[in-house]
Design a protein around this nucleic acid. Structure first.
Length: 829
RNA sequence: GCCCGGGUGGCGGAAUGGCAGACGCGGCGGAUUCAAAAUCCGCUGCCCGAAAGGGCGUGUGGGUUCGACUCCCACCCCGGGCACCA
């Protein structure tokens, strides 16, 4: 029977054994006083949804390779894992089954951990943390209160996004095209009193600090767009009296613009339908129409309102009142329009149809005057002109270019005392609370006497939701009906108080977990400052592009806020020094998901073929940053390759028949040099995430060794031994089980992952002979083997002497000869 | 609309101004075998040619260069992000 053949590769036998040994030996545990140079390698906090899917496997394979590679480089690598275990799926399951989310979640964590272990991913398992662990929740709650004290968290009424499907409010970042990113339900705008986090206080720093991060440009760009800084002027438009003159007895209407230079072309003004001064600025004869318009806008869904289609005349209405353009002194009408947003700037704009296409369309529909204030080029045939050019029709701005005109207009506004230079951000404050059960409770109470909102004292934290709750089909938070939880006493006055039943957005949990990993045992503090100083920032963060905005923005904000609150060193401004965003695994072109039923179970493959084959196939398939289709994994080829390595390294006598000892031949030396070149190559490829070509390198070298051992000359024992050992050491981070097993077989149970990374002998990287290519007019005509140190003139002479060149030239004299000795000669004929 | 990323054999991909197609998959042929699987070896961009050899070839068109998959300009197609932000 083949199965009993000792030299066969049987992954199932060896993988479990090595996984156990890595745990037992604590190979990847690191203490806080570890003397080695430290490296923090982290894969994004996974939501525990059950056994790993193929996307997880890809992500954690890349992370694991880096952990093992850096460890072999002699660094002390912090490689922790945790579980982002709060969230809606567990609560929705609870609603269906009636079972509490905790056992459900613990079960999923068990499944995911076991999968990670089975793919050979190694962690310091002593440091594992979970969001729903009260020991972790406590610090969320402490931070909430510190933020509240510092004014970074506040409670206010505001128009917020409400998802009826998830029965909770959502952050702006969780609304995609007017739909809930989780449930795809249309999101409604509701005016609710809510907890907000003042992330906008850090808007400028969040923007500036992007510059120094080694992150993909794409992610930085997405963050910049999301923060959306714009620079301009905010100023008042005086309300016009009946005769068109400016009234000084009422507040002017404030507007924000990025183009103060075009103010002379302002021929009307527009307010958001939700603007608080609409009533005041509506004339009696227009009031019925304005009211109808506001009602109509209020009834329209967010998605309708976002759509750019639809009759422009249906999108606005005149208020009947006028304001004065302070630049021209002339009265201009005030409109309402649904495209002006109450949440941005002042909720009112000056309209300059000559320089803004939307204003142009509106002006055309309402027959309003259009005045150009920037001269378009002669060949311009469009409508609104948004480009640069000299100012016209603008009195004292005429002739100035846009930049100068802006500055002068702002100076004038300041001189007149009616406006100022103003920077605006698109970024909004983070809506921090959710009306759901399975999250971290917000540690505040509402005093029924006079104290108002009161923080629960730290010695009473963490507040953990009770287990005896009844889940409702509506998704309504069961805490609302749990009298025992709800009713408490005010920490201030001992009077009756109601507990806050909202929980924190689960993005809070993932906003500082990397800091907790530095010191997860701490019971007195969220983490020790010195521990954070030692390991932070994360040297290499790995995760999906889908977190480009949400998680990465919140974690950056938390890091800055915690530094300013003194939890971390003041200069720790950024959590993730280097970010790598790996591509997604797709099935037949579409994203894999459980609901589409197109997932493949990595566990099944591992059972039959082993984790190393799967890891290798993932590494080989595509550059890590790119999306990959599961069908493109070449699982059989990779398994075949590992078998080839096995036969070679286990010295299968059928394969290796002809072994010599003693002095080395030219062939032996070439094999030896190839091994050194491979070290050089693979090291570079690991450094730059070129894992697919590193795998190609392993395969090429193995092919070379196969030819070597099967040649008539045979293989030198020492040369072969070094070559195979080198191959195993280079493969150890990529396919850890087979590499470890073969190394232990060959080296008396030595542990390959505790060895240091091989280094190439520079002397052996020098080549003595190269293939010089000879071109005529850039086309390849001949190849000649030459000495590496050949002179330019010798190279040219050899090229010219080539019979193929002579035949092509056919007696003609070359116009010019380009020589790049020893690699190339190009003859220009 | 604006902003990114990409377009290379039958397929996944390699090649950071110098041999296009490394490596793998697939295909074809051979060895081994009673036979098959497995394994090992060889060939495999397209066209012409018996061969030697030649021509063509990296989305399209132009440009820079002795030389372009690579740099520049324009366009086409695919993927992604932002999208009434004043």
């Amino acid at each position: 029977m083949e199965d009993t053949e000792p030299l066969r590769y049987h992954p199932a036998d060896i993988e479990q054994r090595w996984q156990q040994r890595w745990l037992d030996d604590g190979t990847y545990e690191i203490d806080n006083d570890d003397p080695r140079e430290s490296r923090f390698v982290l894969s994004m906090y996974p939501y525990p949804s059950g056994p790993a899917h193929i996307g997880h496997v890809r992500n954690y394979t890349f992370g694991d390779l880096l952990v093992r590679y850096n460890t072999m480089q002699g660094r002390g690598v912090l490689s922790p894992i945790g579980f982002d275990s709060f969230g809606l799926p567990a609560e929705n399951a609870a609603i269906k089954s009636g079972e509490h989310p905790r056992p459900f979640t613990d079960g999923k964590i068990e499944e995911l951990s076991s999968s990670l272990r089975r793919i050979g991913a190694v962690y310091d398992t002593r440091r594992t943390i979970k969001s729903h662990d009260p020991a972790y929740m406590k610090w969320n709650q402490v931070f909430f209160q510190k933020f509240y004290e510092a004014g970074l968290i506040y409670r206010t009424e505001a128009p917020v996004n409400w998802c009826p499907g998830c029965h909770t409010v959502l952050a702006n970042e969780q609304v995609v095209d007017g739909l809930c990113e989780r449930s795809d339900d249309p999101v409604e705008k509701r005016n609710l009193e809510q907890w907000f986090c003042r992330i906008t206080a850090y808007a400028q720093e969040l923007l500036d600090d992007l510059d120094d991060l080694e992150w993909p440009d794409r992610v930085k760009l997405m963050q910049r767009n999301w923060i959306g800084r714009s620079e301009g002027a905010e100023f008042g438009l005086p309300i016009a009296a009946a005769d068109g003159t400016a009234r000084s007895d009422v507040e002017p209407l404030m507007v924000y613009t990025t183009r103060p230079d075009t103010s002379f072309g302002m021929t009307f003004a527009v307010m958001s339908p939700e603007h608080p001064r609409v009533d005041e600025l509506t004339t009696d004869d227009q009031r019925p129409l304005v009211e109808a318009f506001r009602q109509e806008v209020a009834n329209r869904s967010e998605i309708d309102r976002l759509s750019t289609s639809g009759e422009i005349t249906k999108r606005g209405i005149a208020t009947g009142s006028h304001v004065v353009n302070p630049f021209t002194g002339k009265p201009i009408p005030v409109f309402l329009a649904d495209y002006v947003l109450i949440t941005y700037g002042t909720g009112a704009i000056m309209a300059v149809p000559g320089q803004d296409q939307r204003d142009w369309d509106f002006a055309a529909a309402y027959d309003l005057p259009i005045v150009r204030t920037v001269a378009p080029p002669d060949d311009f045939d469009g409508e609104a002109f948004t480009g640069d050019g000299p100012a016209i029709n603008s009195e004292w701005l005429d002739g100035l270019e846009v930049t100068e005109a802006k500055a002068k207009a702002i100076d004038w506004l300041v001189d007149q005392g009616i406006g100022e230079h103003k920077i605006n951000f698109r970024l909004r404050d983070w809506l921090f609370a959710r009306q759901r059960f399975w999250g971290c409770p917000i540690p505040m109470v509402y005093c029924q006497n006079e104290c108002g909102i009161v923080a629960v004292p730290e010695d009473q934290l963490p507040i953990v939701a009770p287990d005896d709750v009844e889940f409702r089909a509506s998704g309504e938070n069961p805490l609302l009906h749990h009298e025992k939880f709800l009713n408490t006493t005010c920490p201030n006055c001992d009077g009756p108080a109601k507990r806050e039943t909202d929980t924190m957005d689960t993005f809070v949990d993932s906003s500082w977990y990397f800091l907790r990993f530095c010191d997860p045992w701490n019971t007195d503090e969220p983490f020790d400052r010195a521990a954070a100083e030692k390991f932070m920032p994360v040297d290499q963060y790995i995760g999906g592009i889908e977190h480009a905005i949400l998680h990465l923005m919140y974690a950056r904000f938390f890091t800055k806020a915690l530094a300013d609150l003194g939890y971390t060193p003041k200069d720790l401004r950024e959590p993730f020094e280097r970010l790598f965003t790996q591509g997604m695994v797709r099935m037949g072109g579409s994203k894999m998901s459980k609901s589409k039923g197109n997932t493949v179970a990595p566990e099944d493959f591992i059972n039959d073929h082993g984790a190393d084959s799967l890891r290798l196939a993932i590494l080989q398939a595509k550059p890590p940053a790119e999306d990959v289709d599961f069908e493109d994994f070449q699982l059989e080829g990779c398994e075949r390759f590992l078998n080839r390595v096995w036969r070679l390294a286990a010295t299968d006598p059928e394969l290796i028949k002809n072994i010599r000892s003693g002095a080395t031949t030219a062939t032996d030396n070439e094999i030896d040099a190839a091994a050194h070149r491979l070290i050089d190559r693979v090291t570079g490829e690991y450094e730059r995430w070129a894992y697919n070509t590193a795998v190609a390198g392993f395969m090429e070298f193995t092919n070379t060794l196969y030819k070597y051992v099967q040649s008539d000359e045979g293989a030198n024992d020492e040369t072969l031994s070094f070559a195979v050992d080198t191959l195993l050491r280079l493969m150890a981070p990529a396919v850890p089980h087979i590499s470890a097993e073969l190394w232990a077989m060959r080296h008396d149970d030595e542990h390959i992952h505790e060895l240091t990374w091989p280094t190439a002998d520079p002397a052996k990287l020098v080549v003595s002979e190269v293939t010089m290519i000879v071109q005529i007019n850039g086309k390849l005509r001949d190849r000649i083997d030459v000495a590496a140190e050949i002179t330019e003139s010798d190279a040219e002479a050899m090229a010219m002497a080539s019979p193929k060149v002579q035949a092509q030239l056919d007696g003609a004299t070359p116009k010019k000869v380009i020589v790049r000795a020893p690699n190339l000669v190009n003859i220009v004929a």
